[in-house]
Amino acid sequence: MLAFENVSLNYGSFRALDEVSLHANEGELVVLLGANGAGKSSIFLAASGLQKACAGSIRYGDCQLVGMKPSRIVEQGVVQCPEGRKLFPGMSVMKNLMLGAYVHRRDKTGNRKRLDEVMALFPVLEHKQNDPAGSLSGGQQQMVAIGRALMGRPKVLLLDEPSLGLAPLVVKQVFEVISQINRAGTTVLLAEQNAFAALKIAHRAYVLERGRIVLEGDRDSLMSNEAIRKAYIGT
């Protein structure tokens, strides 16, 4: 459904991605593991069109995403919930969510239905809908960020380190929701450092090191992989 083929990406002369090939099939939850600076965010930025891949192709169905405008990519159904959330801090929670549906702004009834689904997924947001998003706790902000991405009606959802900086209990909730979103039919690509929690809900995973894929496999093979356990799970 979403397939990277030999994608390279440079920041100036620094090569952040080096011939990365990976794919996510329809309905899959695929995890990208990697330490700080491995290139996880770069993969997502390339997919969303915020950074231009200098070589290779990113195919989504019949579309070539490389060179497509970010707004067009969202319209196609590839929606990212970025690292650091990138909410509109001064706007209310409701407004953040509604702007998530920006590309569907003409379909008011569809958006209202979608909003109900998001609120059902994150009931705490119901009481907070008129508060500025910037005033919420980290976990709640992450929920707004995921909710905002869902309002864009993703067919492929790109989640960049959604557990970053959250309390363990909140992390658990967030992963539960992600798994739920995936089971409801959305393809998910999830970048994480929290390998154990991520692998538990994943179908497959890739391990990224210094801009290269060094390992890939399904959940069970990676869970039992010695190197993975040492490097990312710590047992």
Partner: peptide
């Protein structure tokens, strides 16, 4: 307003 608050966020919702 969205773009003034978070440029990247605005791009990611398709603005």
């Amino acid at each position: 307003v969205a773009m003034a608050q978070t440029r990247e966020g605005a791009a990611l919702v398709g603005i």
